[in-house]
Amino acid sequence: MSTALLIEQLLNGLQLGVMLFLMAAGLTLIFGVMGLINLAHGSLYMIGAFACAIVASATGSFWIGLIASLVAAAAAGAIMEVLVIRRLYERDHLDQVLATFALILIFSEGSRWLFGSFALYLDIPPLLQGAVPLPGGGQYQLYRLAVIGVGISVAVGLHVLISRTRLGMRIRAGESDREMIAALGIDIQTLYTVVFALGAALAGLAGALVGALQSVQVGMGEPVLILAFVVIVIGGIGSIKGALVGAILVGTIDTMGRFLLPKTLALILPASQAGMIGAALASMLIYIVMALILAFRPRGLFAA
Score class of each variant (00 low, 15 high):
98 L>I: 13
91 R>Q: 12
87 R>S: 07
69 S>E: 06
115 F>D: 05
29 L>F: 00
77 G>D: 05
134 L>C: 07
117 S>D: 11
53 A>N: 03
44 L>P: 05
45 Y>V: 01
79 I>E: 03
125 P>V: 06
160 V>Q: 05
157 G>P: 10
59 T>I: 08
150 V>I: 14
27 L>N: 02
128 L>T: 05
20 L>R: 06
153 S>W: 15
50 F>G: 00
73 A>G: 07
43 S>M: 09
89 Y>D: 04
136 G>V: 10
56 A>H: 03
117 S>I: 04
140 Y>K: 06
129 Q>E: 12
74 A>G: 03
93 H>G: 06
56 A>G: 09
70 L>H: 02
83 L>N: 07
82 V>S: 13
27 L>D: 02
128 L>W: 15
109 E>T: 13
153 S>H: 12
68 A>F: 04
116 G>D: 09
50 F>P: 01
64 I>N: 07
114 L>D: 06
164 R>S: 07
139 Q>T: 14
138 G>N: 08
51 A>E: 01
36 L>N: 03
114 L>N: 08
120 L>Y: 15
66 L>M: 12
22 L>T: 02
160 V>S: 03
81 E>A: 01
146 A>M: 12
112 R>T: 06
151 G>F: 01
116 G>R: 13
49 A>I: 01
91 R>N: 10
94 L>K: 12
46 M>Y: 04
56 A>T: 08
120 L>C: 05
108 S>T: 10
151 G>H: 02
54 I>K: 03
41 H>F: 09
33 V>I: 13
154 V>L: 00
28 T>M: 05
100 T>A: 02
154 V>G: 00
111 S>P: 10
37 I>K: 00
74 A>W: 07
134 L>R: 14
78 A>T: 04
31 F>L: 08
59 T>R: 15
67 I>K: 09
91 R>I: 02
150 V>N: 08
148 I>A: 06
93 H>N: 08
85 I>A: 02
59 T>H: 14
76 A>W: 03
89 Y>F: 13
147 V>K: 11
125 P>F: 13
161 L>K: 07
99 A>E: 08
139 Q>I: 12
41 H>Q: 06
71 V>P: 10
81 E>Q: 14
141 Q>T: 08
93 H>P: 09
33 V>S: 06
75 A>S: 12
151 G>M: 01
106 I>L: 14
48 G>R: 02
115 F>P: 12
55 V>R: 14
88 L>T: 01
18 V>M: 04
97 V>D: 04
17 G>E: 01
135 P>A: 03
